[in-house]
């Protein structure tokens, strides 16, 4: 049995012509690319929100979506059946629920759900935030709650869209380290969208570079930096940056 993602999606969505094909293994995989390249659309499609696409999405040998183009059976699992945790760019915390209720949302109902939510919060060191509403939390705290909520139902895969974009520099550095620790420890397939190279370096995953709806390049950071396939990649992966340790080259 193979583990990880097999993604193949094609279709026209507004101005975007999406034609993406890649495979990715366990642990975090970084989806990187310029604005408007289709990264968010890709994650939403994998989560099950975008219709009118052709192709196939497989997670750990489980077919989530198959438009049946290889004369295979048509498959469309609705989002609630995919067992994929999704954290959108704005985090998507339910503003009318406490942190605990947010995390318990995906764990069923009643006392058992709350107990499970507490465990998830505790694992991310956020138990003391349980009773707070999202607007009472800082950006980094909200990030933890969103991640705890996505992890609590024990999904098979994770989709994180620009998980650090809403944070200020200090929070960003701490949360990046925290995210790297938890994603690598969880070991489950995760697609992390970013346009910040430092996220990619901290998470140490493989890179999938997306430009204008297509996979431009895929591979390990060092390999891509050695032979950039486009101007965007060349500029993004300036070898002077990549050579340094996964520190904060731009943040001093």
């Amino acid at each position: 049995m193979s583990t990880g993602w097999q993604v193949e999606l094609r279709g026209r969505l507004g101005d975007l012509e999406l034609d993406v094909r890649f495979e990715a293994g366990d642990g975090p995989t970084i989806v990187i690319g310029p604005n408007g390249a289709g990264k968010t659309t890709l994650l939403r499609a994998i989560a099950g929100a975008v219709g009118d696409l052709r192709g196939r999405v497989v997670l750990d040998d489980r077919v989530l979506f198959d438009s049946g183009f290889d004369s295979g059976p048509r498959v469309y699992l609705p989002p609630e059946a995919r067992r994929v945790g999704y954290v959108p760019q704005g985090l998507g915390l339910f503003p009318h629920m406490t942190a605990l209720d947010n995390v318990a949302f995906g764990c069923g109902r009643g006392a058992r759900a709350r107990a499970r939510a507490r465990t998830a919060l505790e694992r991310l060191g956020a138990l003391e935030l349980a009773g707070r509403l999202p607007h009472e939390l800082s950006g980094g705290q909200r990030q933890r709650i969103a991640l705890a909520r996505a992890l609590a139902p024990d999904p098979r895969g994770l989709l994180l869209d620009e998980p650090l974009s809403a944070l200020d520099v200090g929070q960003r550095r701490r949360t990046r380290a925290f995210l790297a620790e938890h994603l690598c420890r969880a070991g489950r397939p995760a697609l992390v969208v970013t346009h910040d190279l430092r996220d990619a370096m901290a998470l140490r995953g493989e890179l999938v570079v997306i430009e204008a709806g297509r996979v431009q390049q895929q591979g390990r950071l060092e390999d891509i930096a050695r032979a950039p396939g486009s101007e965007f990649v060349a500029e993004l992966l300036d070898p002077r940056w990549v050579a340094s340790e996964p520190g904060e080259p731009g943040e001093q």
Binding site: A49, P79, E80, V84, P88, G92, F94, P153, P155
Partner: peptide, 15 residues
């Protein structure tokens, strides 16, 4: 209502 909130709810198992 933000579309993302509804999608998150769905991915968390809500019909």
């Amino acid at each position: 209502v933000d579309d993302d909130l509804l999608l998150v709810a769905r991915t968390l198992g809500a019909s």
